[in-house]
Amino acid sequence: MNKVDDNHDPHLAHHFDTPVQQYSSAKIGMWVFLATEILMFGGLFCAYAVYRGTHPDVFLYAHHFLDTNLGAINTVVLLASSLTMAWGVRAAQLGQKPILVIMLLLTLLGGVGFMGIKTIEYSSKYSHGLWFGSDNAFYVKSGKYTNPEELTGAIEYGESHAMPHEDKGELTDEHLELQVKDAATEDVLDNQAAGEAQDQSLPASAQSNIGNATNAPAGLSSKFAEVEGDGSAYVTSEKKPLTYEDLDPQQQKLVSQFFQIYFLMTGLHGIHVLVGMALIFWLFIRALRGTFGPKYFVPVDLVGLYWHIVDLIWIFLFPLLYLIH
């Protein structure tokens, strides 16, 4: 972002010979900086690859606790904001001030929307005891480990457990998320619908608990306990979804790693979105004052590049974290 600063002066800086030289320097500088961004996330992608590569089942199991719908909406929001950003750059180059202002505003709104949805997701994780660090229900280290039975978000677990066929995977995911929201809002009606949708596929023991799941965490625990009791019945079935009991002890330890990696990756990405929003806001103010035009649009161009890279990183994060099969 400092790079942008360098060129805030519409006139040529004293150490450059021509505007083209100055513009190209800024571009090269920005691209080099973006390379460092990619490599920084690259470290986390490596950590992800190592743990997913060695324990694919853990990631398959744990990703059911993420809300695919919200993730998908966020992807669309961010992609749309990239479009408006690119449009804004074009408008700046053509000197179309009103369009530039509108586009920057829309991009900013995209950022706000993205962070808003992210906040909903995070607070849902927090309320289910699936938070960062040791404050996670799957954190098995001595003294801090909560038995997954006590998970208030365990409905999602029952749901994933109930996934009968591959082709119903998408549907089930949706329901799963529905129920998360239910748990948060205590919307009984929705919950009943979700419960009905499951009736055919759930084992009797689990079904009996779905009804009171949203209202009483204690019910969840008991349901969990029963499922646990039945766990062995499912071990051999090929199509069955993974349960916590299917994981061997080493893998059970690793479930919390999924959440740590999830929070690290999306958190670091979120910080980048916030930085991008601050930069776009700054551009917005300057655009209102009419600073940018065909002769001076480097800051818009550079922030645009930055915004696209942040977008691009999310394009990788979304399938890697939310769409595991």
């Binding site: 950590a47 324990h55 960062f132 660090g133 040791s134 954190y139 098995v140 280290k141 001595s142 801090k144 080493q250 893998q251 330890k253 690793l254 919390s256 790693q257 740590q260 990696i261 690290l264």
Partner: peptide, 15 residues
Amino acid sequence: AERAFGIGIFDPALG
């Protein structure tokens, strides 16, 4: 993060 929150990414006790 490992030291402050104990995320355990390098900790064998957490896999």
